[in-house]
Amino acid sequence: MREKFIEFRNVSFRYGDNEPWVLKNVSFDIYKDEWVAIIGHNGSGKSTIAKLMNGLLYPQEGEIIINGLPVNDKHVWEIRKFVGMVFQNPDNQFVGTTVQDDVAFGMENRGVPREEMILRIEEVLKAVRMEEYRLTEPHRLSGGQKQRAAIAGVLAIKPEVLILDEATAMLDPRGRKEIMQTVAEIQQQSEISLITITHDLQEVVKAERVIVMNNGKVWDEAKPREIFAKKDELRKIGLDVPFVAVLADELIQNGIMIKNEPLDHDEILEELWTLHSKM
C-alpha cells in the first residue's frame, strides 16, 4: 500500500478577511513516488495550492500534512527541505553567475560537502541534459534551457517532491514538450513525487492521476483517460480539450469507432491502424 506524502484536510484559504475564498474545503492526498497533475482555469486555486504545499502560505481553515508534519511556523523550514518548487519564470530563481553556480547555491545553503556538491552537479545537469551549459550565464539560455537549469537546481537539494507551478507557461510548444519529457524521465528514474500544476491538458497525459480544480474546489479526481472523456464538462469550466480528444470525437461521429479514449497521437494512430488491419 502506498504511503501518503501530502494530505490536504478540508483546507480553505483567502488572501484577506474581506476577500472571497480562493480555496474552500479542499481535501486530497498525494502519495510517495506518484505523479499528480493539478489542472484548472486561471483563478481556480491551483497555484495557491502550490504555495500552501511549500509553506509560502498557511490555510485559514483545515490542515495540511507534509511527510507527517503539519504545515505551520514550527515545521515550515523542515518541510521546505522535502519540497522543491519550479515557478513559471525561471529568471526569478537564478542567483548564480553560471548554471553550475546556480545549481550549487541551494546545496551551499544546506551545508553539503564540496565533494558531494560536485557529484550532485554532474548528476542533475546530466538528468536535465544541460551538461554542456554548466559554465554558461543563465540569461544567455533559451526559455526551455532556463527551466531545465532551474529544475536541476531544485533536484540538487534532493527534495522528496518536485512541484512545477505553470513551469511551461512561458515556453513555445517545442520547449513545453522538452520540459515535460525531462520531468517524465526524472520521475521514472528517481524516487520522487511529482506535481505538475497547469491549465494545459496536453501536459497531464503521463500523470498517474489528475485533480481538476474549479472555483476553489476539487471538481474531479481521476486518471487522465477518465478526465479526457468528459470533454463537454471540461469546456464548461473553461478548460481546452486536447486536440487528440477532439479528433477522436470527430472520427466517432463519422463512423470510425475509436474504442479507447486516446491520450496522445501515438495511441490514436494505433487505434486507426488496428481498425485498418481488420478491414
Rank of each mutant, 00 (worst) to 15 (best):
N67G: 15
T97H: 12
M85N: 04
I118D: 14
V154T: 13
P59N: 08
G43K: 02
D91T: 11
P159Q: 11
W77G: 00
Q147C: 11
K81Y: 06
D102Q: 11
E131C: 07
T97W: 11
L69T: 03
D91P: 08
K51Q: 13
P138K: 08
G55V: 05
P70Y: 01
E137P: 07
V161R: 02
A152M: 11
E116M: 10
V71D: 02
K146C: 05
L125Y: 06
V95W: 06
A149C: 12
K158F: 07
N92G: 03
Q60S: 11
P113N: 12
T48V: 04
P70I: 06
L162C: 13
V128Y: 03
K46R: 14
I79Y: 03
M85K: 05
D73Q: 13
W77D: 11
I64R: 00
R114N: 06
G55A: 05
G153Y: 07
Y58P: 00
I79T: 05
Q100I: 06
Q60H: 12
L155H: 10
R129W: 10
G96K: 07
G143T: 10
H139V: 13
G143W: 04
V71T: 12
M107A: 07
S47C: 06
V99C: 12
F94S: 02
S47A: 05
D101P: 02
I49S: 01
N42I: 10
K158R: 15
I66S: 03
Q145M: 13
K46Q: 07
E115K: 15
V86S: 09
G153H: 06
L56H: 05
T98R: 07
G111D: 03
E78I: 10
V76S: 10
I118F: 10
N72D: 15
Y58N: 02
S44G: 07
L57S: 01
G106K: 06
E132I: 05
M85C: 11
N67W: 08
I163P: 00
F87K: 03
E132H: 14
N42Y: 03
G55K: 01
V71I: 14
M85Q: 14
N92Q: 15
M85E: 06
M117T: 12
E116A: 13
F87V: 13
G62N: 08
L135Q: 14
A50Y: 05
E115R: 14
G62F: 02
D102K: 09
P113I: 08
V103Y: 05
H75N: 15
